[in-house]
Amino acid sequence: MNAPPVIELVDVAKTYASGSLEVHALQGITLTISEGEFVAIVGPSGSGKSTLMHILGCLDVPTSGAFHLAGDDVASFGEDQLAEVRNRHIGFVFQQFNLLAYLSAWRNVELPLVYSGVDRHERKERALAALAQVGLADRADHKPGELSGGQQQRVAVARALVTEPALILADEPTGNLDSTSTADILNLLDDLHRSGRTIVLITHEADVAGRAERLVQIHDGHVVATGPALVGA
């Protein structure tokens, strides 16, 4: 692990205040993820995995603690800068796919490029290339409703990789998929990892976690164990 850290969390806590009740979703997470790592975050339901991913993805801010992304203190970023970080450096894959139903596959894939100001012609080219990479070149003009769940998630992966981000965050990307589609998605993540991307994968399935190089186990908002993945565990 000589690579520089991409993600550095020091004592990060997140408290949700819903009415008078306070929920301590994260309670002092200290974690470092280096460039090019493939990390799986595992833990029981409600342990704070998604909360952690939202913070890593700059979709939410920690209540306390420090978060450095590629050396920069995220707390110092304004809204526009956060949007730019999400746009250029992070690719998201969600459990519910989150595709826009009224846009065709390639139009969904090009969305991040629209916001980074890439011209139309190049956007289409890159979106089609990303779709080809996930094996959906022939489905570019289909709307999400005309695709299977596995295909929709592949479109979502294409959208995550179209900006060639350094960091890919996937929150239970296979949670809604059967074993064949799961294998497709995991192979895609493997490919991305091999091409040098840093990947953080959230899952509660052992065989899915087994594809990662390192496991981070969290429980009740604490990191309880971190270490190399046990293949087949």
Partner: peptide
């Protein structure tokens, strides 16, 4: 709202 959240997650700045 979900569409807006998604667009923001993908990097849409508030002004867009």
């Amino acid at each position: 709202i979900r569409e807006i959240g998604l667009r923001k997650a993908l990097g849409a700045q508030p002004r867009f």
